[in-house]
Amino acid sequence: MIFFEKVGRYFVFLRLLVTNRESFKTYYYLVLEECVSIGLGSLFLVILVSTFIGAVSTVQTAYNLVSPLIPRYVIAQVVREMTVLELAPTIMALIYAGKVGSSMAGGLGTMRITEQIDAVEVMGINSVSYLVLPKIIASIIVYPLLVIIAAFCSLFGGYLIGAATGIITPPEYIYGLRFIFNDFSITFALIKSVAFAFLISSISSYKGFYTKGGALEVGIATTQGVTNSVIAILIADYLLAQLLLA
């Protein structure tokens, strides 16, 4: 029962996001600000992690493909599929939850316990939409871009390591990347990105927004925000795969 109550409260929270909003112009600047801070804030980590994942995937795929009957370019093809379908959208989502989701939950939690949210509300502003909606919109805009960057870096990481170690030569790698490419994978990855961005930002914000107590509880809310986002991502990942690929 408690579970359903919590889910219900989450949906009430989502409804508050869109009722009784401020003017469009107010949100325009808030969204821009969030986009810049989220985007720039996580760019480095995304590039770093995805490049390494691409490189490691290449090495490990090569290690597993021992049969001389399988051409080398298949390595690139496998890395491509893994990257586009799962590594870029989903693994980055987990990282995004840890980096951006936690800071959303922590930031809103701190605003709650130091009465900053009350200060917003006293002015008659719908604090949920004012404080949270820009974060969600910014996430939905920025996260897919980060995923595209991540996919690119991952494939580039594979390219680099292939060339450096001689596992797969650059021409073979490029050939493999282009071999039987189904561009629905990209659409699918972007659909997933939008869904994950929404889940992470809304769940983390929800947790932070309803923090009660003090600094300790802000920490707990942050952890719960990340944990719940991660669970939601995995469930959504499975459901979307079932819906769109099966």
């Binding site: 701190t110 002015m123 008659g124």
Partner: peptide
């Protein structure tokens, strides 16, 4: 509600804004 000015016990200043922007906030919004 919009005609209420409230001073909170802990100040409740927005930590992401400068002092000036904090004071300007009600004017921006209201």
């Amino acid at each position: 509600r919009r005609e209420i000015g409230m001073l909170f016990q802990g100040g409740a200043l927005f930590d992401s804004k400068t002092v000036e922007k904090n004071v300007m906030f009600p004017l921006d919004i209201l």
